[in-house]
Nucleic acid binder design. Structure first.
Lengths: 253, 253
DNA sequence: TAGTGGTCTAGACCACTGC
DNA sequence: CAGTGGTCTAGACCACTAT
């Protein structure tokens, strides 16, 4: 029985580097996640208990615990009091993260192209002003872009940003994602609230996306906040549904 | 200056009940969340530092910290090292949680009605077998339901569950949500992976949802796992997009 | 330099599960 | 009953930010 239990995490090589600036709990979490991705820790595998794991790595229990909690939050592990910790069944898919579509496409090996349809400063409409937390009529930068991937039109992106936040040239927008440009200017996004829905394409949208009018579109409205707590971007986007979908992992608290 | 800072959380009445079975950190988190919802803690308000808050409540710093982290994870607070903790700007919307559509509708004060279109045990198609982690051809229970809210058709719900997991009568399905029935039988869902997209309605779907064929639909495929790590449900759902959307809060780690 | 959150330790006791 | 995760404490030191 003990031999069977011991085999559960035997093939695992875990180690921590205390000189590294990376937090110990994150080093451990990353190694466990990699082992799960690689199949070294197969679905259903039961992990040793957290005290044994902590001892093996020379860590305190809270630190080991935090590593495990990180993976529970990502949906890779499940814990049950009195029972133990197991690797979740089922293959793992990429999670919805705070990235721009441009980043997503680059990561997926596609070649994103951007056409800037509109880029100007104008007074904020009421709805946009409310989302950004500014007075109606305040100057905001309005963007409208068409995003292509490997040549095929994929999405129409409409964005509004506080005008005092940054200058944006068309050339930059064609070469980089919006979030990348924000990061370059020291604005780090921390929280985004998104609403995902569907509707039929307008005539304009249909023409841009090479669809017939009223064809189903996937839509997303997003308000993003910087670590200062300030609203930094409001976006109203629509996507060709044959080329794009959202993935979300929900974990019961 | 100190008077100004002190005013930040002055109006707040926080307290903990050590006899309660509810964890202390969760008691505190709930009270803070309520204060944010109620506007007592307005957007942009800076909280006292975590040591001061812990002292005020007679808690240790880690416990107070865990309360704050819970709210950071929900997107209600933002922290910045060297600066402090602030209430996020912008109004708060309900988050996507591990609930069924039935629960959502009940909570929103709608009256959900369910028509059972199909409820039988049959061999699992390949795609379903893979999602549930069973051998193709294994017996699974297949459900097809039409969900109405306040009389208007809202969604077509198709589900597959391992047949050995539970018996389900049509009558039960008409009166209760699927997740509620699972809970009653001791199955607690812990993780769900969801893919959200859009497409045009088929002729059947259009008839059920009172739309024209090819009208835009919001779609969601979900695989849910119990705390045992086992896949418990695969669902393929479609929604009238004028009546339903998904809300997601994403927090940068 | 003072103040903040970020990390880490070494214990303790409790609640739940399964045998 | 033994073993597990869940909660909680009272410290410590460090990294980052603003002034």
């Amino acid at each position: 029985m003990t031999a069977y239990d011991a085999a559960m995490t035997e093939g695992l090589r875990l180690s921590v580097d205390r000189r590294s600036p990376v937090p110990l709990y994150h080093q451990v979490a990353t190694q466990l996640a990699d082992a799960i991705d690689a199949g070294t820790l197969a679905a259903g595998t039961k992990l040793d208990n957290e005290i044994a794991l902590a001892d093996r790595l020379g860590l305190s229990r809270p630190t080991m615990r935090k590593a495990i909690e990180e993976l529970v939050g990502k949906g890779l592990l499940v814990r049950k009091r009195g029972v133990g910790t197991q690797v979740v069944h089922g293959r793992v898919r990429r999670e919805l993260e705070l990235t721009s579509l441009y980043d997503d496409l680059s990561a997926a090996g596609k070649r994103p192209r951007t056409a800037v349809l509109l880029n100007r400063v104008e007074p904020a409409p009421a709805e946009v002003a409310e989302e950004l937390g500014v007075a109606p009529g305040t100057d905001v930068r309005r963007l409208e872009r068409l995003r292509r991937a490997d040549g095929a039109p994929l999405a129409v992106l409409r964005n509004w940003l506080p005008a005092d936040l940054l200058e944006l040239e068309d050339g930059e927008l064609e070469e980089h994602g919006l979030y990348e440009l924000l990061r370059q200017r020291g604005t780090h996004l921390r929280i985004a609230r998104q609403r995902i829905g569907a509707r039929g394409a307008s005539a304009d949208e249909a023409a841009l996306l090479d669809l017939r009018p009223d064809h189903a579109l996937l839509t997303m409205q997003r308000t993003a906040y910087a670590d200062s707590g300030r609203a930094v971007e409001y976006g109203d986007h629509c996507y060709r549904p044959d080329s794009y979908s959202f993935e979300v992992t929900v974990v019961e608290r």
